[in-house]
Write a protein that binds this DNA or RNA. Structure first.
Lengths: 189, 189
DNA sequence: CACGCCGATGTCAGTTACTGACATCACAGT
DNA sequence: ACTGTGATGTCAGTAACTGACATCGGCGTG
């Protein structure tokens, strides 16, 4: 007989996503989330640093996968190609969870506060990708600019993936967006 | 005899920047800021929506100037060139306030919460630039990607401008960073 | 098997960001 | 003089978050 049901963090995350979707992020109190998960408010904050983080905790995994993808790209690959490889690796992780990703994205889109957190996560990811590029002996500012461009591509592609009702794969949309970026910047200056 | 000293918003902003710099953002309470400005906490929130916004209220002006710069670029200019014109217009506004910008940047760099707010302001700026491009009949996704790239360039250039102790002009650093972006993406795919 | 430590949770009190409702009073216009 | 208005003050309240301490099953150790 266990003293508590296992999976407290998962129950909290599920309850939070449901409540945020039902009545909005600002209108949901942490006490309500905890109650629905069968726990107390204090326990919520032991698992998640704040009310927003419950939606973003999974992002660390995605970042690790992408960084590995960049590092494992062929040594001869150009910086932008290495980043592309990282994005593709990340896309594989997401590929099976489109409806979860969509529900989560809708909740975030409805709250300015959550958008702030999303942006800083993206920025952290960009920094991690830049770091990976430097690990491949790419110099600054090429590393940072390339990583930023990669993030922009991912952002645009992810939004399209969620928006399109179709079965089109995220990986394909990323390739397409990258081509578009190339076309845009070709005429620079 | 006036009932209150004028310039309440400015006094609050000054007091906030000073205190954030002295002891850090999280360690400063709104009550302390208000007291130093000779006002009450409630009045602080009448001028600024929250504790962070006091550092970002001026950003609206910068955005307007940049948007105008994009719209006023020659009709023949390519999207990326129009964005570049907008960034240059923004640079002019900042050019005279390097030490203020530096102090503010240092405070923001020391706080994750403030970085979140900074990022969303940058994102809003990016959206506004994309909108301006669409006003120039640039189609999606070119408009968004170009604007994003412009933001990335501005971000990198601004950081360098603050970091370098020299008298080098922000405008010049922006031109240089833009050239680097062009070089990076030229090899894409 | 008894003991004792550990880790996840609960309980409780406190701080602080932020909000709504209402009061005050110099100033401006009439 | 009379009155409306706007910027501020006062006060009470909600909810995010934190620190300190209590609880008690499970697990390793002797």
């Amino acid at each position: 007989m266990t003293r508590w049901e296992p999976g407290a963090a998962e129950r909290l995350a599920q309850a939070a996503l449901d409540l945020y979707a039902e009545r909005g992020f600002e209108q949901t109190t942490v006490a309500e989330i905890a109650k629905r998960a069968g726990l107390t408010e204090r326990t919520f904050f032991r698992h998640y640093a704040d009310k927003r983080e419950v939606l973003f905790a999974g992002g660390a995994t995605l970042q690790e996968v992408m960084v590995r993808g960049v590092l494992d790209a062929p040594a001869a690959a150009a910086p932008i190609a290495a980043v592309a490889a990282g994005l593709q690796a990340g896309a594989e992780v997401l590929e099976g969870r489109r409806d979860f990703a969509g529900r989560r994205a809708a909740v975030i889109a409805a709250s300015a506060e959550l958008q702030e957190r999303e942006l800083i996560k993206m920025s952290t990811l960009g920094a991690a990708l830049a770091d990976a590029l430097r690990g491949r002996r790419v110099a600054e500012p090429t590393a940072s600019l390339t990583a930023q461009a990669g993030i922009a591509v991912f952002h645009v592609a992810f939004a399209r993936w969620i928006e399109e009702g179709t079965e089109r794969e995220l990986a394909a949309i990323i390739r397409e967006s990258l081509d578009e970026l190339k076309a845009v910047t070709a005429g620079a200056r």
